[in-house]
Design a binder for these strands. Structure first.
Lengths: 154, 154
DNA sequence: AAAGAAAGTTAGACGGGGCTAAGATTATTT
DNA sequence: AAATAATCTTAGCCCCGTCTAACTTTCTTT
């Protein structure tokens, strides 16, 4: 193997790129969903929804409180702050959009669910807009969609 | 807040769901790319490509060797095993597909790059097929694409 | 063939996010 | 109002993937 070349370990890129981790987005999404459906989000419900232990939820909720994404009162409950709501709505919107889009392509629900769960954290605003626009157009092209579904069917 | 309900912390889901982490996929993808372009993948190059320290690369490469994804010889170099190649090709294909697809929608290169980098790890085989089929169809619909691009342009 | 430079490795630490076990608090039964 | 059940919290641990500092090996120069 040859040598010689610009070397040296490169400088680290700061993580201010995405303000919040996928994990944080997941929590907020579920919390909002619980609030919308049951009126409140309890630790036990969040744990159930995310399939993790209650202890982990308590930990994270305390962190989310510290980050100003929700107001949390020990043993009592939590509500989303404006910042938290904004984030939760944002991720929810991305989730819904991707779900609709993949549904249009004829994918199975469980496949959609899994893929969306992963992708939703990595789709930027411009891409959201583009896929929204595409979805709009596709809805008016049933013949095209039919061809896609057929072709994709293994 | 109400109580009463099925309780108990749920059982953990085993991580055998996705055999390899996004991180592993990222490494393999870069290693394959380096091998294809320069003929070999050195620790220093992988580090540069991934923007992480050489030490981290050495660590991971040893782990990839242990997992049978590549054969690694201390101080000397590495080559992908068949398993490693398969995985690398697979992720590369997903990367390319997503890049093409988003490109079709008229998104900017840097946006595409960032989003694809994140999404490529979360797109299952069926979804790959569906997007492939969709891409095929879209290429034949310049007018539709034009409408999408225009609409997406904020 | 030294000496210096580049590349690679090891050791030890750290943050994120998960877990279990045990204890504290709140709600529900009796 | 006890007693019991459900929920929540804390403490301590673990794994992953990253880092820095120091050291070793290999390559390039001279």
């Amino acid at each position: 193997m040859p040598r010689k070349q610009t070397t040296k370990t490169p400088p680290r890129r700061p993580d201010s790129d995405r303000a919040h981790s996928s994990t944080v987005e997941d929590y907020l999404e579920r919390i909002l969903e619980l609030i919308n459906t049951k009126g409140y989000a309890r630790v036990v419900d969040i744990a159930e929804s995310l399939q993790i232990s209650q202890a982990s939820v308590t930990n994270m909720v305390q962190k989310l409180d510290a980050e100003g994404l929700l107001n949390y009162e020990r043993y009592r409950g939590m509500i989303l702050t404006t910042a938290g709501q904004t984030l939760a709505l944002n991720i929810t919107r991305r989730h819904q959009l991707l779900t609709d889009f993949l549904g249009l392509l004829g994918l199975e629900d469980n496949v959609i669910y899994r893929d969306v769960e992963g992708m939703e954290h990595h789709i930027s605003a411009p891409t959201v807009r583009a896929i929204e626009a595409l979805t709009e157009q596709l809805k008016r092209q049933p013949a095209l969609l039919e061809r896609v579904r057929t072709a994709a069917q293994q």
